[in-house]
Design a binder for these strands. Structure first.
Length: 142
DNA sequence: CAGTGTTCAGGAT
DNA sequence: ATCCTGAACACTG
């Protein structure tokens, strides 16, 4: 399997990435850490130089409801947003379930859960709503 | 079983 | 117009 682990910076955050070849197993944000090599496309994406990370997430395969939700989320274009309800309708499930799937997303960025917002509010984001806002600002060319 | 990053309709202010 | 409720959804510890 040969899973590699690397860490890069994004603003005040450290981004831990677990991957093997073209498949990403886990992405996690942390306040502390030490830099170690990550796939080039992550660095380019996080510095606003490319729109596509171009890697697969382990969580999008299969026929489970979560997998269907994650595949729909990956269809949301760079710089745009969709609501929990919209994704729920596309994946034939409810908005609440979408929220849970986002909260348990093992690979944020690859599955761009930061692009999923509430119909009337920004929605939530682990570990920090500010981080969600920053990612959206960056994608809007801020 | 309880608890989740929601939403919508319906009813009371 | 705004502010509750409650139901529906799928999955995890």
């Amino acid at each position: 399997m040969d899973i590699r682990v690397g860490t890069c910076r994004y603003g005040l955050w450290y981004v831990d990435i677990h991957w093997s070849k073209n498949t990403v197993y886990r992405v996690r944000f942390s306040r502390i850490g030490e830099e170690a090599p990550v796939p080039l496309s992550f660095r380019l994406y996080l510095s606003g130089k490319t729109k596509k990370i171009g890697m697969e997430s382990i969580a999008t395969s299969g026929t489970s409801t979560f997998a269907r939700i994650y595949r729909e989320v990956m269809q949301v274009p760079y710089g745009e947003t969709a609501t929990y309800g919209e994704i729920g309708r596309r994946a034939s499930t409810g908005p609440r379930v979408v929220g849970i799937a986002m909260a348990r997303n093992p690979t944020p960025l690859v599955i761009p859960c930061h692009r999923i917002v509430g119909a009337r509010s920004l929605g939530g984001f682990t570990p920090s709503l500010t981080l969600k806002q920053e990612l959206l600002n960056m994608e809007r060319g801020g």
